[in-house]
Amino acid sequence: MGSSIVETVAAVGLATRMGERCKAYLLLAKPRILLLVALTGLVAMVLEGSLLGAPWRFSGVLLGILLAGAAANALNQYWDRDIDSVMARTRNKRPIPSGKISPREALGFSLVAALAAIWLLQVAGGSLAALLGLGTLGFYVLIYTLWLKRRTTLNIVVGGAAGAAPPLIGWAAGAGEVGWVPALLFLVIFLWTPVHFWALAICLKEEYAQAGVPMLPVVVGERATCVRIAIYVALLLPMTVWLGFGAGLGAVYFFGATVLGLILVAKVAALWRRKDRQAAWALFGYSNVYLAALFLLMLIPRG
């Protein structure tokens, strides 16, 4: 009787530790970001249409995009572990600075995920999709993480190209080429990215300054950052209309995109008036909803 209780307790403890370990690796991959990565890649594949009749290839490409995103996010945390250990927002939440995963384990996870991603994209999507996946991963790690992030306020602007790449990969996997529609999808995400991250940077201005990261609000101040956020929103909204016409989307998309855009403008206007953390957090939170909802609207059948 006693031994069975001990065995049960040991089994529960082992399961708990394994669960915590899996959760730590999931946090290393940044699941919230991965959801947007998967959604934007999936929408491109649905709009292109060639892989809808090949579910195994469709699933393989989508998994490849997810693994590439997980690898990029994990490598970002591996190289940024010194920054993450300084910033209060990340020190106790991310698995490397909190000690839940060692840097060596994080690097190993990243490399395995990257290799699996490129292999899947090659097998299920073809050479162009695999090359785009490899290029995106390399750009995010080498150009953004290791170079731009620590040196210039253009870090988010230029680095945003990596986060905007999933539609290019998904489209190329089906069509074997990249055309106007995936380019417009790319531009929508590219223009959205500074709005999203500069709002967060306003909220974490002091932490970025302490870590020595030249995010825009740290260098030019909050007022100038609000001006640039407004400029990017002014460029983003017409791009969503252009995308709607270019992809042949229906009335539901145009109506929804208009409503989402007006709410985005209202959030930016509130930040402009108040210039406080509460308004910045509100814009940051809504920006996630905005992009996800905009891309979900593209999945609604036309007509």
Rank of each mutant, 00 (worst) to 15 (best):
L142H: 08
Y232G: 13
R302T: 09
F109S: 02
W242I: 13
L120D: 01
K149G: 02
V178H: 07
C22R: 15
A269R: 13
E222A: 07
Y286P: 11
V218F: 09
G285E: 02
R94F: 04
G13F: 05
L26Q: 10
S287P: 06
L121W: 00
S98D: 02
E20T: 10
L63M: 04
I229M: 09
L51V: 08
T225F: 07
F254H: 06
Y144L: 06
Y290R: 09
L249P: 03
A269S: 02
V252L: 09
L131W: 04
A71Y: 06
K100I: 01
L14V: 03
T240I: 08
F190S: 11
L262G: 04
Y140R: 08
D276N: 11
K149D: 02
A234S: 15
S98P: 04
G250M: 08
W192N: 12
P238T: 06
Y232M: 12
A224C: 10
W171A: 11
F197Y: 13
R17N: 07
Y286I: 03
L271P: 06
T258I: 01
I118Y: 02
L115S: 14
W192Q: 14
L115D: 00
W171E: 04
L294Q: 12
A209P: 03
E48C: 12
L35I: 15
Y286V: 01
L185R: 14
F295R: 12
W147K: 06
V227Q: 14
V158K: 15
L62P: 06
S3G: 13
N155W: 05
L191Y: 15
L51C: 12
I96C: 00
K267L: 06
W56K: 15
Q77C: 02
L131R: 04
R274Y: 11
K149F: 01
L184D: 00
A124C: 05
A282K: 00
L264T: 07
R104L: 03
Y78W: 06
T225A: 09
M215G: 01
R151I: 06
